[in-house]
Design a protein around this nucleic acid. Structure first.
Lengths: 241, 241
DNA sequence: GTCTATAGAGAGATAGAC
DNA sequence: GTCTATCTCTCTATAGAC
């Protein structure tokens, strides 16, 4: 249902600014705790103007989720549908996941919240449908393709794993890594988004994936998963948002 | 600061009932979305009566967190301070973690939410201090003891891992496993709390821990991490809350 | 201990001017 | 497109009777 609201260049900029501000605030505070007033302030417009672009708060939130998940899907899809054996494409997809979360850490918190909300309550889109599900569906379509392909792949058959189990472990580990670190070690200078620390995490995840697939991974001879604050920042300085 | 409010036997029962109902609702819906009215309804009292036991909503929430985390701490502490080599106690602690989450799944969602909230916003106790931190502190004390002990332990020294990294991966994986499964596969009969599925997850986690410690784990010769809905429920029937 | 009743703040939605 | 003004509802917190 493409909203028929055509938008001028200026309007498009405003719309994007609203989306960006909302993404950050919804991620940091959650749906209920986020005030439209604060979103408006961040964009330096008035609250009522938001309604011009998004019917109501829920629609704005859904637009944010759609945006964030679409970006992720694109990355994962690219990795999974590339050429080459599954045993390479699957780790590539895991790496793409980690990198995307690093670039767009809002995703980590939004996902954390959506998962926490899931199953019961009010996290429902306008039509009373669970919000997360709609945005996750494309990933299942992807997964189904891969599983099908995997049934003819000796590596996958041998590993004989439960994709949901695997995906949920990876997702949980990364999302916790990004969001929980600064939380639990305030003042320790922890920066999970710093390129070197993110790389360490990526390494750990890849290691796990390879192990689950039962194929030799990057860990061979490289015992490096150590990422405390004392790591020398010889890489560079940015990596935050 | 022990509240000086002495409570009669009847009062104690009411208090516990409020705590239990609040735990479930805060976990399912989050702090902001939970109505004290709903808590009262669940206990079959009137909203105003809650105030007799808990000054306000925030205090009730903090009491819930304190209760849940205290229970966890007890389990982990027991496992970690037992006798025997660290290489056995650490996996035991991981298993205790998984089992506790299985018994008290509220913890998974509460933790998910607290982590998502962390860093920025309003998840602050009365004194303006981050809520999570206070309840997590005892775990750090524990961790510090173990790290100190580990410095003299050849196994630990060799593995040379970052405890925070490890703990966050394990926590993330389990919590996602418990909360994300039913969310992402509604209607698939997924029951992460079912004993057999929980056992499969515990196995996966232990495997990971052993691998990280660089010692032989339970995985040797037992390729069993498969936990889809088709698993025959030959164990038993309960395991839900 | 538990209740009824009410006060009071907050925040989303809407109407309509510019 | 963006604003001001206002309406209305929801929910917490409080006062005080039983």
């Amino acid at each position: 249902m493409p909203e028929a609201v055509r938008i001028s260049p200026r309007g498009e900029r405003t719309r994007q600014a609203i989306l960006a501000a909302a993404e950050r605030l919804f991620a940091e505070r959650g749906f209920a705790e986020t005030r439209l007033e604060d979103v408006a302030d961040a964009v330096e417009i008035r609250r009522a103007s938001i309604v011009y672009y998004f019917r109501d708060k829920r629609e704005l939130y859904d637009a944010v989720l759609a945006d964030v998940f679409a970006g992720l899907h694109e990355r994962i899809e690219t990795a999974l549908l590339a050429t080459g054996p599954l045993a390479r494409r699957i780790p590539a997809a895991a790496a793409a996941w980690v990198d995307y979360v690093g670039e767009r850490p809002s995703l980590a918190r939004l996902l954390l919240r959506e998962v926490a909300d899931s199953g019961y309550r009010a996290g429902l889109a306008r039509d009373g449908e669970p919000a997360l599900l709609a945005h996750i569906q494309p990933f299942f379509a992807l997964a189904a393709r891969i599983v099908e392909e995997g049934e003819a792949d000796p590596v996958l058959v041998r590993a004989h794993l439960d994709p949901v189990h695997v995906a949920s472990s990876i997702a949980g580990a990364t999302v916790f890594f990004v969001a929980a670190m600064p939380a639990l070690l305030p003042g320790h200078g922890f920066e999970p988004l710093r390129p070197d620390q993110l790389a360490a995490h990526r390494h750990q995840i890849l290691d796990l994936v390879h192990r689950l697939l039962g194929i030799p991974g990057p860990s061979v001879g490289t015992p490096r998963p150590r990422a405390d604050a004392s790591t020398d920042a010889s890489t560079d300085g940015h990596g935050s948002r």
